[in-house]
Write a protein that binds this DNA or RNA. Structure first.
Length: 817
DNA sequence: ACATACCGGGG
DNA sequence: GTGTACGGTATGT
């Protein structure tokens, strides 16, 4: 028997003979990599209509034929539980083989007097963590036997655990991390496809290890560069280094979507199995979302988390590595022209050094970003009891789901099932009235104050006890504002005040914990762990309210969601009325925020108004000052005279631009369109010089008309997503792809098609040409479809129509203005 | 008007 | 092997 303390980093399971074993990978307190194996019987609940003992006897006897052996119910017991707030007597059913759960559950559903079967739709490792209330990344004590016959696992030792306990709060603080990044060879100005080889691989770890592996020799004096024979040995190197260093985490930027899938497909070419802990590198494709998973070494894709969960609060212009590194680290990528990589590689010149450095820096930045987000990941892990791998890729609803399930276990609540496809799509068709949005008057405004409710929906949920478990027909408790249903019928919902609902209770816990954390944070402003904790608590609280109306939610409750938005509308409109009574000009408001034009009011008047409102609000609710702003721009709705909701730009007193709702021009637009949009926003918001912006655009349009604009800037790039035969509707890029194929170029899914729209009549597709074959561009197309859509909304507000902009000559579609 | 296809991140 | 991403826009039919 040994006693060991360790931190769980990764949770998996393996099928052994007659049952599944949970595998807990982690790091011991003295730094050894460990895999702990433990028995676990999947358990779920059966709620009978009546005759619980009889039903239990029948359940006990169920036997099903598995692939190789017979599966049966291992054990049953009667247990008092709660389900959606009510007390129930349930049968708890234990099964050793998780693969048999679904079939046995189906058989039970067919028995007489069975009302509900619950908790069968959770996968094995999640269920293990929930049932045993195990939190990953928290110090875990085990007692067990060391196994000596498990060479298949790449760890320092393997232990079969008899007892597992988590007693201390201590969490895993110093994981070893390796960041990696690939560079791919590609012919000039083409985005690489999986037919192209990997030519560089950088690996950087937080213990100081730094390498760039590449297979073309050139002169250099850098220690970090190591030459290898060819692409094949480069891939072997990746595997070797990862096995040798055996880090807790391996990280990349968009490595779920790019680096790992690419590595996998190139490795396959050479018959290399990227195998860790007796398991392949697993690439999971679902729709457009790809994940890459290794067993025992946790893969964290920095982009997935920053561009997913964190993006909501960060609100960056985009989530490219360069932008994110600039914003979060104050560091930039090395500025090289990647279009030249292929040429430089073919030349084999010393310029390759620059690209190696570029490759290295990408890994360094990724590593730093990973360390930066680690506190946030850790706090969410501890809040939800989910493995960090899952948290890194989770949606908001998944995080709430996990948090509620974890709390359900603490409060003895049976977890509701996820809706099946039918239920989910039915829920999807039910819409309900959302938040109140005050329609802005389009224009450019000076001196603004923005106020918002701190966690409006979560506080409403708590204050009015909104929960599927408290929803009732009886009056006397909390009565929602009047709600207009889809049918036009008016209705109110009631929530009892006699008992606290499950969700209000757990959300209140979060809100009060966050208030406490924020108090500590005031004294210790830069503490990253406290910051991350506050952030995690806020994230979960805010997402819970949306979750109640989310079709895939376990604790779905449309009435709750409807009531919450109704109360929200009441609170915000009330504040708007009061502000107007005070003599403030309200210019805009959305859900939980209001925008005031200060005019002759002072900042102090604003703060006094805030105090006044807060004195009247229930204690948990609070209206806060978001900030004062120098200027704000509100634009028209497309083709209408009214203001567009959720679309505005503000400049802070420090001169920082905050843009909301303006879709920044994407990669499938021409360079010229992107350039124009960027400059126009800058001229107007930063320099406060609309005239300059206007003149700038006029000049660009002139230049385009004269045919003098750079052809390069007219190139539009679109990815080919399927085989040419697979298209029912052929867009311009598909037609161009056919031309490429006719010229003998490789054409297949994944390639990027570039084209320029040339003059002529008819479909854009018929006029789209391969850039090198295009002699001229269609000025009308570029003005009407690329430049004007980007700027017209902004100029409309400033009272300058686009007729002036394009000059006397009429453009297509101009009539409507 | 409706259907279809692509964007994001990555070289 | 978990879930069936998603909201927005342009082009074709």
């Amino acid at each position: 028997m040994v006693n060991i303390s360790f931190y769980i980093t990764d949770v998996n399971y393996e099928n052994r003979e007659d049952k599944a074993l949970v595998q807990l990978f982690g790091r011991t307190i003295d730094g050894k990599k460990i895999c702990v194996l433990t028995d676990y019987d999947y358990s779920f609940y059966v709620i009978p209509k009546k005759n619980i003992k009889k039903v239990m006897e029948k359940v006990k006897k169920i036997v099903v034929m598995g692939k190789e052996k017979i599966d049966f119910v291992k054990n049953v017991e009667i247990i008092d539980m709660k389900y959606l707030g009510g007390d129930v007597q349930a049968i708890r059913v234990f099964i050793s083989n998780p693969n048999a759960v679904r079939e046995i559950a189906e058989r039970i559903k067919d028995l007489d007097n069975v009302e509900l079967v619950k908790e069968t739709d959770l996968n094995f490792y999640k269920k293990y963590l929930l049932d045993n209330q195990i939190t990953p990344l928290v110090l875990t004590d085990i007692e067990g036997e060391v196994l000596l016959d498990r060479d298949d696992l790449d760890v320092d030792f393997v232990v079969k655990a008899k007892k597992i306990k988590q007693v201390k709060e201590e969490s895993f603080e110093n994981p070893s991390i390796i960041a990696f990044d690939l560079e791919i060879y590609s012919p000039e100005k083409k985005y690489p496809s999986e037919k192209d080889p990997i030519i560089m691989l950088s690996m950087v770890s937080n213990d100081g290890y730094q390498k760039v592996f590449t297979w073309k020799k050139f002169k250099h004096n850098k220690k970090y560069i190591e030459f290898v024979e060819d692409e094949e040995s480069l891939i072997h190197k990746f595997k070797e280094v990862l096995k040798e260093k055996n880090p807790d985490y391996v990280t990349g930027y968009f490595s779920d979507g790019f680096d790992f899938p690419f590595l996998q497909s190139r490795a396959k070419k050479y018959g290399i199995d990227l195998r860790f802990n007796n398991s392949h590198l697993r690439i999971n494709k679902r729709g457009n979302s790809v994940t890459a998973k290794l067993k025992g070494i946790v893969h964290l894709d920095v982009f997935k988390f920053i561009g997913g969960i964190m993006a909501n609060s960060l609100n960056f212009e985009n989530y490219k590595l360069n932008t994110v590194a600039k914003e979060l680290l104050g560091k930039k990528k090395l500025d090289v022209n990647l279009d030249e990589l292929g040429i430089v590689w073919d030349d084999g010149s010393d310029k390759l050094l620059e690209f190696c450095e570029y490759n290295l820096i990408d890994s360094q930045l990724t590593l730093e970003l990973c360390e930066k987000i680690l506190p946030n990941l850790n706090e969410l892990v501890k809040l939800t009891n989910s493995p960090i791998y899952d948290i890194c890729r989770s949606s908001y609803s998944a995080i709430v789901d996990m948090y509620l399930m974890r709390m359900a276990k603490e409060y003895n609540e049976i977890i509701p099932n996820k809706p099946d496809q039918g239920d989910a799509s039915l829920r999807r068709t039910h819409t309900y009235q959302g938040a109140f949005v005050y329609e802005p008057k389009p224009g450019l405004y000076g001196k603004l104050a923005v106020l918002d409710f701190r966690s409006l929906y979560p506080t409403i949920l708590v204050v009015h006890n909104v929960c599927p478990t408290t929803l009732t027909n009886k009056k006397g408790g909390y009565e929602s504002p009047e709600i207009v249903l889809e049918s036009g019928e008016k209705k109110k919902y009631y929530f009892t005040s006699k008992k606290e609902g499950f969700i209000p209770r757990v959300v209140k816990e979060i809100i009060t914990r966050r208030i406490r954390v924020n108090e500590l944070l005031k004294k210790d402003k830069k503490n990253p762990i406290l910051k991350a904790r506050s952030y995690a608590l806020k994230t979960v609280a805010n997402a819970t309210s949306g979750y109640l109306g989310f079709f895939g939610a376990r604790w779905y409750c449309r009435e709750c969601a409807e009531s919450m938005t109704a109360w929200g509308r009441e609170y915000i409109t009330d504040v708007i009325e009061k502000a107007e009574k005070k003599g403030f000009e309200v210019i805009y408001g959305d859900t939980d925020s209001i925008f005031l034009v200060l005019g002759d009011k002072s900042k102090k008047d604003t703060l006094d108004f805030l105090d006044e409102i807060n004195r009247e609000l229930p204690s948990l609710m609070e209206l806060e000052l978001d900030d004062f702003y120098k200027r704000g721009l509100f634009v028209f709705r497309k083709g209408e005279k009214t203001g567009a909701k959720k679309k505005y730009a503000l400049v802070s007193e420090e001169g920082e631009i905050k843009v909301t709702g303006f879709e920044t021009v994407r990669g499938d637009w021409s360079v010229i369109a992107r350039e124009v949009q960027k400059k126009v926003l800058e001229y107007i918001l930063k320099d406060n010089d609309p005239k300059k912006a206007y003149e700038y655009v006029r000049k660009v349009i002139e230049k385009i008309k004269r045919g003098k604009e750079d052809m390069e800037k007219m190139i539009i790039k679109t990815q080919l997503k399927r085989k040419l035969e697979g298209y029912a509707v052929e867009g311009p890029h598909v037609k161009v792809a056919r031309k490429m194929k006719a010229k003998g170029e490789y054409v297949g899914p994944g390639i990027t098609v570039q084209y320029i729209v040339t003059p002529g009549k008819g479909n854009i597709g018929n006029r789209a040409e391969i850039p090198e074959d295009a002699k001229s561009y269609d000025a009308d197309y570029y003005i009407n479809n690329q430049i004007l859509p980007v700027v017209e909304k902004i100029f409309d507000v400033l009272g300058r129509g686009k007729e002036e902009l394009v000059g006397g000559k009429k453009q297509m579609k101009l009539g409507e203005y």
